[in-house]
Amino acid sequence: MSSGPVLRAMGLRKVYGDFVAVDRVDLEIGRGEIVGLLGPNGAGKTTTISMMVGLVPPTSGDLVVEGRSVRRDPVWVRSRVGLVPDSPGFYDGMTAWENLWITARLNGVRDESRIQDAISRVGLSGWEDVAVGKFSKGMKQRLGIADALLKSPSVLLLDEPTAGLDPGGSDEVLRLIRSLADGEGMAVLMSSHLLHQVEWVCDRVAVMDRGRVIAQGTLDQLVGRRYYVEMELDGDVNAAARALLPVGKVKVEDRRIVVEAGEDVRRKAVDTVLRAGAVPVEVRMRRAGLAEVYRNLLEAGS
């Protein structure tokens, strides 16, 4: 077993004719780590995941899982990577156990106790003999994770795992994903459009746009030390905004001013506004979040 990253994508590229869907993606995922994969529709996220799971062959580059290359050992690599699509497909007229039995046989799993173990791990004990057509979407999503776990993968890839779920169902699925990383050391890549969920559950984030990874790192590394002081003013807002320019980046929204800076500048901003002849009616300070960083990254690349 490799002591390095569990999964490593190196210059991963996919071209369809003249269209470059994925362009030299470099990405690593360590044991017990959850990496969030972000990007707008068409950014190349699903194609990247499809290459990682072996559904789509890369045009160039390589994917290494536990030190073994998908180009040299494609069957072995596929056996170590589990995929959970946004809408797992099951036979609704069959029970949960019967659906997993089919997956087990297709993957050469003969030990039927593995089926029950997978059901228990995702919190569906007691539902083994219930037809999947009676499951809620959240239960089907958990069954999809059980389906992927039958291979005992070291890497789990999830494409929009909470799409269409209510808040309660989303929380259950996210807690399950976190437990697989923390409790079992699984390396997880999670594609999602829901930034607050990524911010909650992921250790690192990679942002894709137009087929390329344009930024990656921990949330602290991406967000950095960015503070926003928001003030509702009574008085000459434009004069106050001009006076605040040495304090930080200034944005005016009607009677509201937002000052962006690399530190907490509330006291300095209030003093500056008062000297400019305006009165702060309300003052709030907040840290930058992933949503703002994500939006800024995409705007910078447009």
Rank of each mutant, 00 (worst) to 15 (best):
S60A: 14
G11D: 12
V273N: 11
T47C: 06
G93T: 14
D159E: 05
E98C: 02
A181H: 10
E28R: 12
L38S: 08
Q221S: 14
L180T: 05
M1S: 04
V130W: 06
G44H: 04
P161L: 04
L158C: 09
P88S: 03
V77F: 12
H193E: 11
A240D: 02
S69K: 10
G36K: 09
A148L: 08
G4Q: 10
I214C: 07
R286C: 06
L27H: 13
R71H: 11
A146N: 08
V198C: 03
R287E: 15
I102Y: 15
V237W: 01
S69Q: 09
D203F: 03
T59C: 09
V281R: 15
V237S: 05
E33I: 13
A241Y: 08
M51D: 01
S69D: 05
K45P: 02
V247D: 01
I102T: 12
V198S: 07
E292K: 02
M1W: 00
T59A: 01
D18E: 14
V207F: 07
M51R: 08
A131I: 01
V258Q: 12
A243D: 05
C202W: 03
A278E: 04
E253G: 03
Y91V: 04
V25F: 10
R24K: 14
V122L: 02
V283D: 05
G89F: 05
Q141G: 09
W76C: 09
Y16A: 13
D23G: 09
N41S: 12
I29L: 15
V64L: 11
V265K: 00
D159S: 05
